[in-house]
Simulated scan of single mutants.
Amino acid sequence: MDENKVSVSRILIVDLMGLIADNHLCQLQVNLERAKLKKTAELPCSFENVDVLFYVLPKENQVDLTHLNKISKKSHMKIYLMTEEVSASFIPYLSFPFDGLFSLEFFYRNAQLVINTVYSTGPVLEPAMHHRLAFEIDRRRTVKKPIKQFILKNDKVEGLLKENEQKVLQLLLEGCSNQMIAQKLYFSPSTVSSTISSLLRKMDVQDRTQATVQAIRNGWVESLR
Rank of each mutant, 00 (worst) to 15 (best):
G100H: 06
Q149N: 13
Y108I: 02
A182W: 04
K145G: 11
M77D: 09
I151T: 10
E3T: 06
E165C: 07
R139D: 05
S223R: 10
Q149R: 15
F107Y: 05
D204A: 14
G18L: 03
M129I: 04
T121R: 14
I11G: 06
S7A: 15
T121N: 09
D155G: 08
R140Y: 03
L173H: 02
M77G: 09
E60T: 10
E126N: 03
T121V: 09
K202Y: 09
M17F: 14
Q112S: 11
Y119K: 13
E85W: 00
K202D: 04
S177P: 08
L224M: 12
Q214T: 09
K145P: 10
I13L: 00
S72D: 12
Q166N: 08
E42N: 11
V114S: 03
V6F: 00
K70Y: 15
S177N: 07
P58N: 01
E136Q: 08
T66G: 10
L152P: 03
L28M: 05
P97L: 11
P44Q: 06
D22A: 05
G18Y: 08
I71W: 04
S120E: 07
T191Y: 03
R141C: 11
S72Y: 13
T142D: 12
T142P: 00
D22Q: 01
S72W: 10
M203R: 08
I137C: 06
P123N: 11
E158W: 08
N4Y: 08
E222D: 13
E48H: 07
F102T: 05
N164Q: 10
N218Q: 10
D207N: 06
E33G: 12
Q214M: 12
N4T: 06
L171C: 04
P58R: 02
S177C: 03
Q29M: 01
E85A: 07
K184T: 02
L57S: 02
D99C: 15
L68N: 06
S194H: 09
P127L: 08
S120A: 06
T191L: 12
S198R: 15
E126Y: 00
N4K: 13
I181W: 00
D64E: 15
Q179R: 13
S197Q: 14
V56Y: 00
N31W: 12
E158I: 10
S7G: 12
D138I: 10
L113V: 10
R10Y: 02
M1C: 12
